[in-house]
Amino acid sequence: MVFLFLSGLVLLFIVAPLAGMFLNTSAGQYADTLTDPTVMRSIRLTLLSSLAGTLIFGIAAIPLAYLLARKDFFLKGLVNGLVDLPVVIPHSAAGIAILGVVSRGTLLGKAGEAAGITFVGGVAGIVLAMAFVSIPFLINAARDGFAAVPEKLEKAALNLGASPWRVFFTVSLPLARRSVVSGLIMMWARGLSEFGAVIIIAYHPMITPVLIWERFTSFGLAYARPVAAVFVMVCLAVFVLMRLLSKNHLHVRN
């Protein structure tokens, strides 16, 4: 009974502020927001930047997750800790750290400039900041997924003559897919919501969390709330859709 009460309290704590936000926004405000090109542009930018970060860094993060799950090596504990680092440091600090690496005077900054990529105040910087803070979600989920694949199945595939490369793509990755996809979704979702690290690297072009903050500080709560409500709904809708898609897909196979 006590457990039920406490559980209810926690759920209420999560749902009530969001519900309040949705209910305090009128239909007219929703309509205005949805037709505001600035808002729409920022939502598109946010969704795509996070997606790009997830896909680009995911390609490297998945092999790392596999190594962490399968191999024992010197200082593995340290590497596991490093992976979690972006979760525990303040994100503004993460932004400062990334800025130190990509600002104009640095090697990476110069290289980017030469290639026509602007990190500071550019989409590339946003992608980098989003990926930095969200990559632990993918690595951890994928590592747990790979660890749950029986090593025997990989050995069986080797015994059938397959190369380690082929074993990874035909046995390990398909069997860990549920966790890997779930990790990708988590990483993407976490990237969408990033504010602290992004605002330090790129105030413009404006992603939605920055836009919400800008409207709040410049015009007040009433102007920030509709944007926040719309953005939360978009995030929820995409999140639920992706979950359903990945689940259905797996269901058919099994």
Binding site: K152, L153, N159
Partner: peptide, 20 residues
């Protein structure tokens, strides 16, 4: 020799068929 280059085929006791 590497596992994949041996002239042996192993059938595990638990069979280890690929479930997917």
């Amino acid at each position: 020799a590497r596992i994949q280059q041996r002239p042996v085929g192993l059938v595990y006791q638990d069979l280890s068929l690929f479930p997917h």
